[in-house]
Design a binder for these strands. Structure first.
Length: 758
RNA sequence: GGGCCCGUAGCCUAGCCCGGACAAGGCGCCGGCCUUCGGAGCCGGAGAUCCCGGGUUCAAAUCCCGGCGGGCCCGCCA
């Protein structure tokens, strides 16, 4: 290919002659991007254009003489030997731009051979040369079902893995099972209380969803109990505050003689006695606060000066209580909501979890025992996490994701390497020992080591604790160990970690630690593919309160929308209310595929580094997946009709046939919509290479959408099969085939399910 | 308080790294085309101080400086 490069050479040659600058100077201008060759904004202006204003200005050519200059440069270009080489058919100078027209039919012929023989795909494959790469993604805590946030991780990760496969890497997808943290211990604690009383997961609920409720309720009941304790303790103090406020108000009345202040005093005095009766302290505070507010307004700026001091003091004293109370009520609300879902789980946990301190102690005990490899506790952790992972596998299977490996944080290898990490750290010059804790002083490292300094940029690197005073290790320590495992044991030449942006700093610390421990190579080949969170409109997710929008729900919601959309369309059209679904099973499978396509497309649709926000009640506005699949189906149906067989099953035959027809499209003029479609298709290889570099997986979806849009316009405008002119017909058939083939590749990368018919 | 990221029509985004010709696409809205291969589509229309202010430049959404607004991170948590 290399049209652009060719044109740049041609322009360098012609410009140097027309202006009298050396070729070297001109080519430097291109390199410095003072001159830039780019597609024109519209076909009327030619295919490619270059802005020459810089040269015009530099050569001090007055506006009136631009025309002469233009003629000159155009003549040079059209008479040069590059004219033929670069497919140039015409050049024109307007407003300081030199615009060039290209021989598209010839490009189409070349590209058709490139794609239809499969050479394009072989060339892309040559990039990776079978090198082993690990993409770690999803790695959600096994405590509740995957939610839309984890879903975004999964979709980005698996898409990126597939992209690398197309680029010829030997890709492994790994899931890191984070089973040694506190959260899993909370779940295990809840499960242990339940199993003691014979409450087990039942068949009515997907297993990870059941565990999700157990985790949330266990957490909620502990947090609620803690707050309860705190509120009881606070209440006594608050009553004192109210009494004191009453005294202060009385004092202020005596000084100022303002009657409304005496009114306040009576209200506060009364309130301070209310503790003898059963009244909601929260409401009392709110009422008193309102009274204060009203009186402030009533008195005006001058008179309320003394009072405002009391108000500020009162608010300071009570704000903590109010905050805790509100949080407490949120837990109560969450408890009620989940209790209705699984009453037996709720009732048992409510009875068992009474003292939060006992619960906390039990959870810490579980963690310690797991770290010490106590056999009974280990079984409990393994069983619980394993059950939740079973639920994950089911969901992931729906969206076409299968992991090559689940790596357990608690595995022998990673435990062993974790010890090694601490040991090695001890012999680095950056280690700090405090109460038996092992800490890497990354700040010091940044001052002395270029790699570490550059890694953190302006950021404060902080201290990286590898071992606590009590001898246990931390998540980050095990993460460093896991990285060594991925490179050392698994032989990865590059590792991509798909991890949320909030962990960016931790990922840098892991890299820094690897570097300081002597694994310079691993540090450099560890890539953090970071992505931002998912924000739902009108719904704030909180996994600790069991309020999550799960990936399963998202897919199911899409199934509903897809079915509704389709049937409403049919009912409005030919079918009427009696529209008959031919094959119910096939219909369901199609709906599922479309739902999955929409789910993946939605989660892939924007730059990973930006927050993805959508309204779950407006999913019908996000149907990019359906839209792409539908275009794909139409392309197939055109080829199916022409050849009389399934095009996807006979790609080689079709390729041979179309290559034979290439001679008949030599003298063809391409319509605008054809050129635009071809242009979009030409960009396919570059898109893959760009995404590998930039990690912007959304660009793949954008490319697919762009191709579909151009394809839709193309065959809306132009007939293919019914075209009488043989050359035109084959041009269009070739375009249809190329579009289908490239779209197929993109669908495979993004794992959008493939459909033959709708 | 410090660091990083983001701010583009009513809404969601692309373009910014690497400055160029009317700021692109989708949703929603208004008006057409009810399927001769394809209607989950296509065509047309309305709708933008590219957050604000300054600077560099022949030329700024893009680069630089200063504000404003939002998110995230700054644990012997994971």
């Amino acid at each position: 290919m290399g049209i652009k490069e060719c044109l740049i050479n041609a322009l360098t040659d012609s410009l140097s002659r027309a202006v009298g600058m050396s070729r070297h100077e001109i080519s430097e201008l291109f390199k410095e991007l003072k001159l830039k060759l780019a597609p024109t904004p519209s076909p009327e202006l030619g295919d490619y254009g270059v802005a020459l204003h810089y040269i015009l200005h530099r050569e001090k050519i007055p506006r009136e003489e631009w025309g002469v200059f233009g003629e000159n440069i155009t003549r040079e270009l059209m008479s040069s030997s590059y004219r033929d080489k670069c497919y140039i058919v015409k050049a024109e100078f307007t407003n300081g731009y030199l615009n060039i027209w290209i021989d598209y039919p010839r490009i189409l012929r070349d590209y058709a051979v490139y794609v239809l023989t499969g050479r394009i795909f072989d060339e892309l494959k040559s990039r990776g040369r079978g090198r082993r790469v690990i993409v770690e993604h999803t790695s959600a805590n096994p405590i509740h079902p995957l939610h839309v946030g984890s879903g975004r991780n999964t979709v980005i990760g698996s898409t990126f893995a597939n992209l690398l496969r197309k680029l010829g890497y030997d890709v492994r997808e790994h899931f890191y099972v984070d089973d040694m943290g506190r959260q899993v211990a909370v779940l295990v604690y809840g499960v242990s209380l339940l199993s003691k009383r014979g409450v087990e997961p039942g068949p009515d609920r997907k297993i990870d969803h059941w565990y999700g409720i157990v985790y949330a309720l266990t957490n909620i009941l502990i947090e609620k109990a803690k707050l309860e304790k705190k509120l009881v303790e606070e209440a006594a103090r608050i009553h004192d505050v109210i009494s004191e406020a009453a005294e202060k108000l009385l004092g202020l009345y005596r000084v100022t003689g303002l009657a409304p202040i005496y009114e306040l005093h009576v209200s506060f005095k009364n309130a301070s006695w209310k503790k003898r009766y059963i009244h909601n302290l929260y409401q009392i505070i709110r009422r008193l606060d309102k009274l204060l507010e009203k009186t402030m307004k009533r008195l005006g700026n001058e008179e309320s000066k003394g009072l405002s001091k009391i108000v500020d003091w009162f608010r300071r004293e009570t704000s903590g209580f109010l905050e805790d109370y509100r949080e407490y009520m949120e837990y109560v609300e969450a408890e009620n909501r989940l209790g209705i879902l699984e009453p037996s789980v709720h009732d048992v946990l409510e009875e068992e979890i009474t003292d939060p301190l006992i619960a906390e102690e039990a959870i810490s005990e579980l963690m310690r025992k797991y770290e010490d490899e106590d056999p009974i506790v280990s079984d409990m952790f393994r069983k619980t996490a394993g059950d939740v992972l079973e639920g994950f596998r089911e969901t992931l299977g729906r969206i076409g994701v299968v992991f090559d490996e689940y790596d357990w944080e608690s595995s022998r290898e990673i435990r062993g390497l974790t010890r090694l990490v601490v040991e090695k750290a001890l012999s680095t010059p950056y280690v700090v020992l405090e109460d038996n804790a092992v800490i890497l002083d990354l700040g010091k490292a940044a001052r002395e080591d270029d790699y570490v300094r550059e890694l953190f940029g302006g950021e404060e690197p902080g201290r990286f604790v590898l071992r606590r005073s009590d001898g246990t290790t931390l998540y980050g320590t095990r993460d460093v160990a896991y990285s060594i495992y991925k490179f050392g044991k698994l032989g990865a030449e590059k590792v991509y970690n798909v991890i949320a942006h909030e962990q960016a700093r931790e990922q840098k610390q892991v890299k820094a630690a690897l570097h300081l421990l002597g694994y310079h190579d691993y540090a450099e080949k560890l890539v953090h593919l970071d992505y931002e969170m998912v924000n739902l409109k009108g719904f704030s997710m909180s996994s600790r309160r069991g309020r999550i929008y799960t990936l399963d729900e998202l897919i199911d919601d899409y199934v509903e929308i897809v079915v509704r959309d389709y049937l409403e369309n049919k009912i409005r059209g030919v079918g009427g209310l009696k529209y008959r679904i031919e094959n119910l099973e096939e219909f369901q499978s199609t709906a599922e595929k479309l739902a999955v396509a929409n789910t993946r497309a939605l989660l892939l649709s924007i730059d990973p580094r930006k927050t993805l926000a959508f309204d779950p009640s407006k999913l019908q506005e996000h149907l990019e997946g359906s839209w792409i699949l539908y275009t794909y189906v139409r392309l197939q149906s055109i080829l199916r009709k022409h050849y009389g067989y399934e095009p996807l099953e006979h790609l080689e035959e079709i390729g041979r046939d179309l290559i034979d027809k290439l001679d008949s499209i030599k003298e063809i003029f391409l319509e605008r919509s054809e050129k635009e479609l071809l242009e979009s298709l030409l960009g396919y290889p570059e898109t893959l290479l760009t995404v590998e570099e930039s990690l912007e997986t959304n660009k793949l979806l954008e490319k697919a959408m762009d191709i579909c849009m151009k394809a839709n316009k193309f065959y809306e405008e132009l007939p293919v099969l019914s075209e009488k002119d043989r050359g035109k017909k084959y041009t269009r058939l070739i375009l249809v085939a190329l579009t289908m083939i490239i779209l197929k590749e993109l669908l495979e990368i993004m794992k959008l399910p493939k459909l033959k018919v709708v």
